[in-house]
């Protein structure tokens, strides 16, 4: 009962945050709504019994990704959106070209099909085993995740760590101060 209430609250957080991200015109406001949405996702994980994943969601997204996004927005600065055409008229740029509309349309169609299928399955199969089972879903997940990471999924683990190392080296190279002697 209590778990269900928490689940619904988290779901509302997630969906409202996501909608506000899409609707909001100020990009910093959008990242704050994204923060709310991500906290909601952490709540969803928690109510479904994945405590470690929930806390990882908090650490990675709230502590890392959102702060880095804010930094990136601040340091790149707002672009001057007024574009002057070659005839001397100032015009507001459009939201995209034919290419972006086609890609966006296809992506949203795909997402709609997947979500529709999920909702359809959830509505059709309302047997007891498919409902949220929160009473016995709480168990220790940390040690299981740890064991699986270094045994069964060690390849994925290593590949992602190489990816992160590459990102780190790349960031260091980009951020390196250019000396006068270079070039």
């Amino acid at each position: 009962m209590f778990g269900t209430i928490l689940f619904i609250c988290s779901a509302i957080f997630t969906i409202c945050g996501a909608v506000m991200v899409a609707v909001s015109k100020n990009v910093i406001h959008a990242s704050i709504y994204l923060l709310i949405s991500l906290i909601g996702v952490a709540g969803l994980y928690l109510t479904l019994g994945a405590d470690f994943v929930a806390v990882t969601q908090l650490v990675v997204y709230v502590g890392g990704v959102v702060i880095l996004m804010l930094f990136a927005i601040m340091l790149t600065g707002g672009a001057d959106l007024k574009v002057v055409s070659r005839y001397g008229f100032t015009k507001d740029p459009g939201m995209g070209s034919l290419k972006t509309y086609v890609i966006g349309g296809l992506t949203s169609l795909f997402m709609a099909i997947v979500t529709g299928k999920l909702i359809y399955n959830a509505v059709i199969n309302t047997t007891t085993e498919n409902q949220l089972n929160m009473e016995n879903s709480v168990e220790q997940t940390v040690s299981k995740i740890g064991t699986l990471l270094v045994t069964k999924h060690v390849l994925a683990f290593e590949i992602s760590s190489i990816l992160l190392l590459g990102a780190l080296v790349g960031a260091a190279i980009i951020a390196r101060p250019v000396k006068l002697g270079d070039e």
């Binding site: 470690f52 806390v55 990882t56 908090l58 650490v59 502590g63 890392g64 702060i67 804010l70």
Partner: peptide
Amino acid sequence: DLNVGVFYLFGISSLVGVGVFLGGY
């Protein structure tokens, strides 16, 4: 006494950083 207590503490306290940053902005 969460079984991911230490991790949780670091996670939730990183909200303070967002607050400080937004207060400044």
